[in-house]
Design a protein around this nucleic acid. Structure first.
Length: 202
DNA sequence: CCTACGATCTGCT
DNA sequence: GCAGATCGTAGGG
């Protein structure tokens, strides 16, 4: 444990159980030097996507394209893509190279660089609307599609364990948001969020 | 080449 | 509650 916390090691990301990693990322701290200044937030909401048997995943059925190629990279890479032509969504690639699993980070609670975060979000008050959504938090932390493929063991974007973890009863799971197109897979309870906090999406 | 639509957010009614 | 923004991606001709 250093002054702040320990950067999550490669083994954490190389787990073959993306659902467990998704749950385990709650309470970890997403740190970013993207955009030129340090900002960070506590992860409060995530979703798991599994490349092999999950219709909601971009890499479903082994789909390999220029966009999804990043998901096939080694665990511990960033997968950032543009959604609805406007929003940059940040994911953590997991599992071994060649297996396209990823965790979408959906909400964070600002921890460092709060003034810059407010400025980037064009907000006055530090309230949930600042970072309670996948498109909002990337704007808050300065993460864009330029960061696609970034190694999360580097010094641009990384995730820290600060010795804190939520207990099982503090965590809820629900179906994922916005994946109605995935049929039966849309029902999988692979969204994880912290209970009793406003810092999550509706 | 052409078209349809999306792992969303904001502002307005 | 709803529509518009805005453009890359994927799939079909």
């Amino acid at each position: 444990m250093n002054e702040h916390g320990d950067k999550l090691p490669r083994q954490f990301y190389e787990s073959e159980d993306v659902v467990s990693v998704s749950r385990g990322l709650l309470g970890k701290v997403l740190c970013s030097n993207a955009g030129g200044s340090f900002t960070a937030g506590i992860i409060t909401e995530t979703e798991a996507y599994c490349g092999r048997n999950d219709k909601a995943c971009h890499a479903y059925n082994g789909l390999r394209t220029a966009r999804t190629e990043t998901m096939y990279g080694r665990g511990g890479s960033a997968y950032v893509y543009l959604c609805y032509g406007i929003h940059h969504l940040f994911n953590v690639v997991t599992n071994q190279e060649g297996l396209a699993d990823a965790v979408l980070i959906r909400s964070v609670q600002p921890l460092h660089g709060r003034l810059l975060i407010l400025e980037r979000r064009n907000r006055e008050l530090l309230e949930p609307v600042v970072s309670n959504g996948p498109g909002k938090l990337t704007q808050a932390l300065g993460i864009t599609r330029e960061d696609d493929g970034t190694d999360l063991l580097g010094d641009r974007i990384w995730i820290e364990d600060r010795g804190f973890a939520y207990s099982a009863r503090q965590i809820a799971s629900t179906p994922r948001i916005g994946v109605d197109y995935a049929g039966e897979d849309a029902k999988k309870p692979w969204r994880f969020l912290v209970k009793d906090t406003e810092w999550v999406s509706g």
